[in-house]
Design a protein around this nucleic acid. Structure first.
Lengths: 211, 211
DNA sequence: GTCTATATGGTGATAGAC
DNA sequence: GTCTATCACCATATAGAC
């Protein structure tokens, strides 16, 4: 508020964001939260504006339409999670077994979906309700991430580290389905994420039955 | 069509449904499909009417509001699935091990969510978008079904059939999360349900890694 | 950058004819 | 039972003041 009306465009730095960048992030965060809560059609631009402490008309300064706003939310979710997982795996020593790579991917995926919370939730819950063009583009990105998992499982299978009767594509949907369900029930003040990750990793690795 | 305008109310039989009952089911089925596709707010009464070959105004002869219509859809999903699973378990011989009861429950759950398709999908996708009162009631029912799973796992654990370090509540959400994800990708012309059930059962029981 | 005011169109629900 | 016509409301998006 009360910023001088005329000022030079600022150099972007890591620490100082312009007023516009701050507002833009507030808008995006509010959008992610409300979209994931009420669905695409159930979310009004007024509600998002309210969550970002703006009036409805002001949103259009940052995003020219509801469609481009949900697209930005979905992008953030998909890119955030996949980039986190890719970088976690890339950071492992070359000698890491595939079994350990899978364990690392499970943990990284779980942590990053919970970290990206509302953005990941929005991907999960509203992707099916979004205008077709937006959906088409994002399904491509989501599938690319799914392919990463299949390749990881294939490598492990080729190295003889998996049970030989496991269907790899089915295993991928099984694993991601189980992990992503944490978005629906995990609460930050509950069990620490690391413990959830350890339990889920054990379940995926060895199942529930005693041997 | 072309039914006489005056006729006595019919006795209900298993084979013959009245015209009203047939239309009512068509409306419910169309509602389940469209709600699960477009979300609660994204579904218009006009679209449902269209799917049921009616005009929008005619829906209100069967359901007095959109809210009561989604409630009927959610009821069908939750009751259908839980009743199927309960009866599958009740039909097992008393001597059945808990491990085998769990296997049977996995298979029954998977088969019935896919059988109830759109109704189960609607529960999964729109429960969070529905008016609070409707949601409140249905969360109670869903939780009751979740408790059944926890009790089943507790019994197995008490009998020493599970790995002792498994967190039972976490295992329940893990199992149901993985199974329910099948709703998002399973297609009737793909892998037979029995085979999916066998694979998922093996994954939940023993995990993916070779020992 | 953010506001207010408003245009244009779609939505749930009702009334009453047939 | 199903239709047509319609009401009252709320949505996205735009225009222009500040």
């Amino acid at each position: 508020m009360n910023t001088p009306t005329l000022r030079k465009p600022r150099r972007r730095t890591a620490e100082k964001q312009t007023k516009a960048e701050i507002s833009r992030e507030r808008v995006l965060a509010a959008a992610a939260r409300i979209f994931s809560d009420r669905g695409y059609a159930g979310t009004t631009m007024r509600a998002i504006a309210d969550g970002a402490n703006l009036q409805a008309g002001s949103l259009y300064y940052y995003y020219p339409s509801k469609e481009l706003l949900i697209e930005a939310v979905l992008d953030m979710g998909i890119h955030g999670v996949s980039a986190s997982v890719y970088s976690a795996i890339a950071g492992l020593p070359p000698s890491t077994t595939y079994a350990d790579r899978i364990r690392a991917a499970i943990s990284a995926h779980l942590k990053s979906i919970l970290e990206f919370g509302d953005y990941a939730l929005a991907s999960r819950r509203v992707l099916g309700q979004v205008p077709v063009e937006v959906r088409r583009k994002h399904v491509v990105r989501r599938d690319a991430y799914g392919d990463f998992w299949v390749r990881l499982l294939e490598s492990a299978h080729g190295a003889g580290e998996l049970r030989s009767d496991v269907d790899l594509k089915l295993a991928r949907t099984f694993i991601l389905g189980a992990l992503n369900s944490a978005l629906e029930w995990y609460r930050p003040n509950g069990m620490p994420i690391d413990e959830v990750a350890a339990q889920f990793t054990a379940l995926i690795a060895d199942g529930i039955f005693r041997r």
